[in-house]
């Protein structure tokens, strides 16, 4: 049986207490919430923190607050996000993203904050210690070479969070709290395109909540590509949020991609292109081409990388057609294998 390494254990009851522990223990301490990312990683010895600081008992992390927008505690499970009527009705793309993370059990355990902070993934990295020894390790952990791109000085492990691209398209922010204070960061600015140092969050900071802006007038959607209808991380995530005028003209549009780089990111040019246009087939195709040109999948996850790039335009098309109001249920069923 795969087993965890030895670790110390702390279980604070408040954010302040947790922040204080992190400040005291330094980088050898790690936060654990649902554990669905960290526990497998620890079993494979990717991370071997001396201390685990559990956020389970921190009630503040589990609030849902309505205001102008919606504030969601980072400790809410993905199932709780999916069960939230406010999320489902106002932030459809985010709801669809959350509903497609991993599997039902993993959504029952995994948290919103955990999905946003998900470790980057790579088929040369997400392996046991023994396997990684057989390739003399890799740049991301214990080695010197990136086996995906041997000339690369940067780790190209892929961002695999579903919720982040959706939240980026919706203009959401997160709150980061440490013993020194707190700050707000747009989800779009939370990530760096570096497979190792992929978050702007500092080790002593706790991601405590996600703040969604008012969504009046916006329509959003998320299309996830993965091999199976369950379990699999995305090999492409297309999130779109569009504000349409009464006549169907695009007032604002934000298109974001996931799983095609070490970070999820906004394709500004795609949104700018759509602004002032109607969602005609031609405009959708052009937007698809613009967005596709920004996707840089690598050979470090499931499915053929050239194919993954080839289909980005089609997935942008599915997203924008759904926003236009086309009946995409049959296509959704074929891709996601469930109604969303």
């Amino acid at each position: 049986m795969m087993r965890m390494p030895w670790f110390g254990w702390q279980s604070p009851a408040t954010i302040a207490e947790a922040a204080k522990i992190l400040a005291g223990e330094g980088p050898q301490a790690m936060l654990i919430a649902g554990g669905t990312d960290l526990v497998p990683n620890m079993k494979r010895r990717h991370q071997t923190p001396a201390t685990l600081v559990s956020l389970r008992r921190v009630a503040e992390l589990r609030k849902i607050a309505n205001g102008a927008g919606l504030t969601l505690g980072a400790g809410l499970t993905l199932t709780e996000i999916v069960d939230s009527a406010a999320v489902r009705e106002k932030y459809r793309g985010f709801w669809q993203a959350a509903a497609q993370v991993a599997s039902p059990h993993l959504r029952n355990m995994g948290t919103l904050g955990g999905n946003l902070c998900l470790d980057t993934r790579c088929t040369y990295y997400n392996q046991s210690l023994e396997w990684r020894k057989a390739i003399d390790y890799c740049l991301k952990k214990d080695g010197e070479t990136c086996w995906v791109a041997t000339a690369s000085k940067r780790c190209v492990a892929v961002s695999s969070t579903d919720s982040a691209p959706a939240l980026i398209s919706l203009g959401a922010k997160v709150k980061l709290v440490s013993a020194q204070g707190e700050r707000e960061v747009a989800v779009a600015d939370l990530y760096k395109n570096d497979g190792i140092d992929y978050l702007v969050r500092k080790p002593e900071e706790i991601l405590t909540e996600v703040v969604l802006p008012d969504a009046q007038g916006w329509r959003s959607t998320y299309w996830k590509l993965r091999r199976r209808g369950s379990f699999d991380f995305p090999v492409l995530g297309v999130a779109a949020a569009v504000k349409l005028a009464a006549d169907g003209t695009v007032e604002q549009a934000r298109l974001a991609l996931g799983a095609v780089a070490s970070r999820p990111f906004l394709v500004d040019k795609g949104g700018e292109f759509l602004k002032g246009r109607k969602l005609t087939d031609e405009a959708i195709a052009e937007a698809g081409a613009i967005v596709a040109s920004r996707a840089k999948p690598m050979d470090n996850t499931d499915l053929d990388l050239y194919w993954r790039k080839d289909v980005v335009g089609s997935f942008v098309g599915h997203a924008l057609r759904e926003i236009r109001g086309d009946d995409m249920r049959a296509m959704r069923m074929r891709i996601a294998r469930q109604a969303l």
């Binding site: 997400n126 396997w131 003399d136 070479t145 086996w147 041997t150 199976r228 369950s230 379990f231």
Partner: peptide, 27 residues
């Protein structure tokens, strides 16, 4: 198989239930 100039490694690509794809109840 890793680039032979750099490594002699020849490893299983997907030795896990996540990466070895088997149909789920939805598939």
């Amino acid at each position: 198989r890793l680039p032979p100039k750099l490594s002699s490694a020849l490893v299983h690509r997907n030795p896990s239930m996540l990466d070895y794809k088997s149909l789920t109840s939805l598939d």
